[in-house]
Amino acid sequence: MISVKNLTKRFGGFTAVDNLSFEVKPGDIVGFLGPNGAGKSTTMKMLTGFLTPSSGEIRIADQAMDQSSKHIQQRLGYLPEGAPAYGDMTPIQFLNFIADIRKLKGREKQQRLDEVIEQVALTEVLNRPIENLSKGFKRRVGLAQAILHDPEILVLDEPTDGLDPNQKHQVRELIQNLSKDKLVIISTHILEEVAAVCNRAMIIASGRMLFDATPEALQKKSRYYRAISLHFTQMTDISGLAELPGVADMEVERHSGRVLLFPEGEQELMPGVSAYIKNRGLQVDSLYEEQGRLDDVFRQMTAEVKV
């Protein structure tokens, strides 16, 4: 359980995080979204006790961060931005060091090490200095370090940055497979990631909270949510489509010739549209309902802040 109240961080005259308040419960996998410089990393640094807030309060598991940061840090796993690690150590030395600091001992330690190395697939590079590893492996070493002590709370700052699609998939699977009563906060600017992994999305920009709900709710905010997208095989008179009941607006994408029908409210357009096509005997080579475009919502929301 994380509870943040009126969290503010100023660097000189610049306000990085501005009066942020939220709560996160066990079982929540929070996607922390925002443009670069929005205050995501700063917030995470305060949540993990690295930075001291200018004002406001952080309580984690009923303990105040400013009083018992060391207790909180024992229960917390953190992957800092860029996955820093000691370059002169090998992954196995590094993980042993972290395990010792985390007070893992004997069989339990060996078991956790084996498990984590298997989970993030580090076996082949265990004895190579970290500074010689590829970006993907470095990131995985950072992840291994964060989950080594099986923490209740996991804070990951851009865990998939710089990974190739296969590795991204692996990391997402790893996060999904963590047990259900854990609390995970992931920062990212990859929107599909939020839809794929998280059950809660928070968008912040200029240090302020813009949105906090499920990824589905975020999709619903898109003007493309439940819009019908179709493409005709031949040139067709489409003026009748816009007249269909429930259609608020129609657009034709110029380069592809794709027709988009936007619904009024959350009305379902598909039955009407397919009936119309059938009745007229129109040739359609693609027809589907859009899920809502997240990047569209994201751009819209964060652009408003700047103005």
Binding site: K45, G49, K70, H71, L76, Y78, A85, Y86, I98, R102
Partner: peptide
Amino acid sequence: KSGTIELLMTLPVT
């Protein structure tokens, strides 16, 4: 410089 200070300071050590 390498950012490991962030790692170190968020481990349960003073």
